[in-house]
């Protein structure tokens, strides 16, 4: 199993300055944050898909396809229990099925899926080293930036480790598929301790190895790769600024909101 998402494709997005890529991630989060309406969320979603096509990142989107589907589907369902506005389309106990609750739930689901999509896109086109450099250029301390970027790299490793631990418990007769939804979720608690211990050991070993390789000697380490600012970075920066402004305007003018109905 590949433990990182970065795909070395060499497209112009891959070659953008790390700071621009970090800003791009921020702008995608920013845009998604301001609006709730699925229609309003559509342009940024299409933009992400276009960049995914451009950068050859489909493989990673395919890898996480179930997460996207589950996010949209379950969020839409869950909001039927909590969103009580609008005329009910059908009368059901506990559940409020109205045009408003469906649109609101779908909007929330798309929002979460787009946040995931932005992260996948960013990690597909940005090396962890670039992430650190990008954060440092934006004023984040090197140690903090490195820790954040390393965390992104470690998440897939921990998932891998958790899957092995689930297998190990299954092989001692522990049935994760027994009982209802909540019982099944409760049964996964047994995995927490080994995953936590395994993560601690790994983090400890990694911290030692980092220190032994001189990590922390300087607050501004040099870099092997030079990251010059190119015209494409300026164009990308302006485009991102336009997207961020556009989405703020959608929010400000009220077009991004959902009207109960």
């Amino acid at each position: 199993m590949a433990i990182q998402l970065y795909l070395d494709r060499g497209t112009f997005v891959h070659r953008l300055h790390p700071t621009v890529k970090v800003i791009a991630l921020f702008v995608m989060f920013w845009s998604v944050y301001w609006v709730d309406n699925p229609i309003a969320l559509l342009p940024i979603g299409i933009f992400m898909l276009w960049v995914a096509q451009l950068t050859g990142s489909w493989r990673n989107f395919y890898r996480y396809r179930w997460y996207f589907i589950i996010l949209v589907f379950t969020t839409t369902i869950v909001w039927l229990f909590f969103y009580r506005q609008g005329t009910p389309l059908i009368n059901l106990p506990f559940v409020h099925v109205s045009r408003g609750s469906l649109v609101y739930g779908l909007g929330r689901g798309i929002k979460l899926a787009e946040l995931l999509g932005a992260s996948v896109l960013f990690l597909s086109t940005t090396r962890v080293e670039e992430f650190t450099v990008g954060l440092a250029k934006l004023g984040v301390s090197y140690r903090v930036g490195f820790a954040i970027s390393l965390a992104f790299r470690l998440v897939p490793l921990f998932i891998d480790s958790a899957m092995t631990i689930v297998d190990a418990q299954k092989l001692r007769g522990y049935d994760f598929e027994k009982g209802g939804l909540f019982e099944r979720m409760r049964r996964y608690v047994t995995v927490v301790i080994p995953v936590f211990m395994s993560a601690l050991r790994r983090a400890n070993n990694m911290a030692m190895a980092l220190e032994a390789r001189g990590f922390g000697l300087r607050n501004n380490p040099t870099t092997l790769i030079e990251y010059p600012v190119m015209p494409a970075d300026v164009v990308a920066g302006l485009t991102l600024f336009a997207i961020a402004t556009g989405y703020f305007l959608i929010y400000y003018t009220g077009y991004g909101a959902i009207t109960p109905g």
Binding site: R127, V128, E129, R153, N205, M206, A209, L217, P221, L224
Partner: peptide, 20 residues
Amino acid sequence: AQLFSTSVELEVAFAMEQVG
């Protein structure tokens, strides 16, 4: 646990970068 980088050359350069 002692490899942190995304390419072989960046891995070798890591310690050199740290010492500036």
